[in-house]
Every structure is written in structure tokens, then in C-alpha cells.
């Protein structure tokens, strides 16, 4: 199947600032791509190009084969910006019905969208009375109304508590099953909770990673930490034998490459008398993200 979103070596600069530099990305129907990067990494610029608000300096952005921003392309796409303040005196239903009508859908579709994001009960209340999380969900309802084929969500989970974040990813997964392509941006990998099928990382306008989360974790080759809780008397000897660092007097933490892990565990296994507990800590998602968003750009560009 052809790509829903096709970004071909797009570059965009504002004055001296290179917001995007030769970025290529494609999103297939039904695929969820999480776009990660610091503030200023180029995420929002990419969204604005996909909506046709700004033109790239070079390269092209296609929506289902159409030039981004043309009327037919905008029929397929829906957008949730990072910061949006809906008129406080309108009810949730009025806000969503308004955007439904702008998209050429019936105003009555608002009810279903509000139910989907869990605002069915609050639909008749003025959105000035909504909490921050409810306002974020209202923005999401506005985005999913009218059955868009492509969803562009800029930081959709900021301001959501972990429970609503979980609901959000469930909703996205449901839409993706129906063939909706989702491009969502986020500050860090940990916020994604391993829910996106693919992750792309932007750093200073460069695409430094693009692939399934498991692949990024593997390729980062980050050290694994093995934390050994020792019997009080044996901490010193274990520390001398395995290296690493002492924690709290009765623990030793050893860091190792992924392929050294088994050998170290085997060696530890030879000392059952000295060890109370062993904890193996794989690199966290945040560490993986930090690795890609901070590492030397030359090395990363080739990986």
C-alpha cells in the first residue's frame, strides 16, 4: 500500500536556523509513528509543513500522494496543536460540532467523538469549566471527529495523568486498526509507554533514528546495570572482584555491555553465600532517548 504521509528530503530554515535538514519519513496507513525530539528539534515545523502552513525550502511533503496543504490533502488530515484554547463560553459539544462542520461532516458526529474521548458526560458543559486533562481530550475529540485518515497530534499526552494517557493510547490503537495513520510528537520515550509501532527521533533538524522501539533499544548498545545486594561482610570482596561501585554499604552495582551480561551473572552465581539478591536493570527508555538525542551527530547519521 502506498504511504499516507511521505516526506521526501525536506529542508526548512528560518533565517540562519536550520529547523529541518533533509528529513525523509514515510508513514503507512494504520501505522503509528512517534516523533521525538527536544523543543526546537523541528517537530512542530514538520507538522506545519504537512498542513501546508509553510513551504519547505527543498524536498516535498505528500499526503496520500497529494501536495501537503492543498484542499484535498486537508480533507484527509486532522491536527491537534500543542497549545490550543477553545472559547470558554462554548460547550464541548459546540466546539466539536463546529470543527465537524468545517471538515464537511455532520454536527451530530460530535457526540460520538466526545464519547470516544470520555467527555460524553461533560459535553453540555462550557469548556471554560474543564480541567486541563479534559481540555486536552476535547482537543483530541476535535481531531478525531469526521473520521480523518491521518492524525497529526502535537504533544497529545502532555497534561494527561497516566490513566488518561493509557486511555489515549488505547483510542489511538483502535483508530490505527481501522487504518488511520497517526503521527504524534512527544518529549520523551517514556511518555510513549512503548505504545507506538515506530519511533523517529529528530535532533536539531536531523532525523537521527527511525525504527521500531526494540530496534532502537538494541542499536543504542547502552550498558546494563547489575545491582548485587550482598551479605554485609562480603560487599568489600565482591566490589574488589567485580569492580563497579558501592551503594549503601551492602550493594554493588556493576555496569556491562549487553553481551557481557550472562558471563557476569554466571560468575555471580558461583558466590551464592555472599549474595542476598540480584537485580538486572536494562537501560530505561529515557536513557535510550538521551542516547539518540545527545550523541555525536556524525556517528548517528550513519547508523
Amino acid at each position: 500500500m502506498s504511504a499516507s504521509v511521505d516526506i521526501r528530503s525536506v529542508s526548512k530554515s528560518f533565517g540562519d536556523v536550520h529547523a529541518l535538514d533533509g528529513v525523509s519519513l514515510a508513514i503507512a496507513p494504520g501505522e503509528t509513528l512517534a516523533l521525538l525530539g527536544h523543543n526546537g528539534a523541528g517537530k512542530t515545523t514538520l507538522f506545519r509543513i504537512l498542513l501546508g502552513f509553510i513551504e519547505p525550502n527543498s524536498g516535498e511533503a505528500l499526503i496520500d500522494g497529494l501536495k501537503a496543504g492543498c484542499r484535498q490533502a486537508r480533507r484527509l488530515i486532522s491536527y491537534l496543536p500543542e497549545n490550543v484554547a477553545f472559547p470558554k463560553t462554548l460547550t464541548g459539544r459546540e466546539v466539536v460540532a463546529f470543527y465537524a462542520q468545517l471538515k464537511g461532516a455532520a454536527a451530530s458526529e460530535a457526540n460520538a467523538a466526545l464519547e470516544q474521548v470520555g467527555l460524553g458526560e461533560a459535553a453540555s458543559r462550557r469548556c471554560g469549566t474543564y480541567s486541563k486533562g479534559m481540555r486536552q481530550r476535547l482537543g483530541l475529540a476535535q481531531a478525531i471527529v469526521g473520521n480523518p485518515r491521518i492524525l497529526l497530534l502535537d504533544e497529545p499526552t502532555s497534561g494527561l495523568d497516566p490513566l488518561s494517557r493509557n486511555d489515549f493510547y488505547q483510542l489511538i490503537a483502535g483508530l490505527a486498526e481501522q487504518g488511520t495513520s497517526v503521527l504524534l510528537s512527544s518529549h520523551g520515550l517514556s511518555e510513549l509507554e512503548a505504545r507506538a509501532s515506530r519511533v523517529a527521533i529528530l535532533r536539531q533538524g536531523h532525523l537521527v533514528a527511525d525504527g521500531p522501539l526494540a530496534m532502537l533499544q538494541r542499536d543504542a548498545r547502552l550498558p546494563i546495570r547489575i545491582r548485587v545486594k550482598t551479605k554485609p561482610a562480603d560487599a568489600e570482596t565482591l566490589h574488589r572482584e567485580f569492580g563497579g561501585r558501592r551503594i549503601n554499604g551492602a550493594s554493588v552495582e556493576v555496569t556491562c555491555e549487553p553481551d557481557e551480561k550472562m558471563a557476569i551473572l554466571a560468575a555471580l552465581h558461583q558466590r551464592p553465600g555472599a549474595i542476598a539478591d540480584i537485580e538486572v536493570i536494562p537501560p530505561s527508555l529515557d536513557e535510550v532517548y538521551r542516547h539518540y538525542s545527545r550523541a555525536n551527530p556524525d556517528k548517528e547519521a550513519r547508523s
Binding site: Y79, P87, K103
Partner: peptide, 9 residues
């Protein structure tokens, strides 16, 4: 909200 409105067709 202008971004939202102009993102529609």
C-alpha cells in the same frame, strides 16, 4: 485556534 481552523478543508 487559527491553526485548527486552517487545517480543515
Amino acid at each position: 485556534t487559527l491553526q485548527l481552523v486552517l487545517a480543515t478543508p
